[in-house]
């Protein structure tokens, strides 16, 4: 099944251009693993990057530039394509690369904390200005209505949830900003697993900081 809610053009452009911070790029790239449509879009956008690269004004290289490069051509053997990474048998099929590479020993080995039907685990804590979290919401759980300060991206990996903006299933991306006021409810059946990234300004974090995700505001 293909996702129905895709990241906006501006997110795909920033991903192709390589101007995003890592947490946002992680959401986009993980969506790409689940969405052939956006993979195609990003390929087109990379072609656009090539076109823009070609048509921009050239900057003269140093006089010895070519000579230096030619002198190094034999330095190393041609780079062979990297062998496909081996997938451990224990890997959770719900978590594709690149997200899987951020989970260390795996989903269950993360440092989960639980609160009223919601489990969360922090990722990419070394990146300032962002909160990157995996969230697991018990099926059927409704969260209090809340608004956001800052932008939040949520990618569903398993299960699903609904709010005023639609129904979000595996691969779908929900984008919320300060104008969004919603009351998400996790689907009955399977627990909802998602990756949520907020670019909440730093002043909102800390012991009394707010957690800006579709499900909870602390």
């Amino acid at each position: 099944m293909m996702p129905e809610h895709h990241p906006g053009d501006d997110l795909l452009i920033a991903y192709a251009a390589g101007s995003q911070d890592e947490p946002v790029a992680l959401v986009v790239a993980t969506h790409l693993a689940l969405c052939p449509r956006c993979r195609n879009e990003v390929e087109r956008l990379e072609e656009l990057g090539g076109v823009l690269l070609e048509e921009q004004e050239a900057e003269a290289l140093g006089e010895d530039s070519l000579e230096r490069v030619l002198g190094r051509l034999d330095e190393a053997a041609p780079e062979a394509p990297e062998p496909p990474a081996r997938v451990p048998a224990s890997v959770d099929p719900r978590v594709p690369r690149p997200l899987r590479d951020y989970l260390g020993a795996g989903l269950e080995k993360l440092d989960w904390t639980s609160y009223r039907g919601l489990d969360k685990a922090e990722l990419l804590q070394e990146v300032p200005g962002f909160r990157t979290r995996l969230m697991r919401i018990k099926s059927g759980t409704a969260m209090p209505a809340h608004t956001h300060e800052g932008t939040e991206l949520t990618l569903v990996l398993a299960g699903g949830f609904s709010d005023e903006h639609g129904h979000f299933l595996r691969g779908d991306v929900a984008e919320a900003d300060a104008a969004t006021d919603h009351r998400p409810v996790a689907d009955p059946g399977e627990d909802c697993l998602c990756l949520a990234v907020t670019d909440a300004p730093l002043r909102l974090t800390g012991p009394f900081g707010r957690l800006l995700n579709p499900f909870l505001r602390i």
Binding site: G18, E22, L32, A33, R97
Partner: peptide, 14 residues
């Protein structure tokens, strides 16, 4: 920084 990218060989890739 790292650039998160898909792995075309990943069995979990749709």
């Amino acid at each position: 920084a790292r650039r998160p990218e898909i792995d075309p060989e990943d069995p979990a890739l749709v």
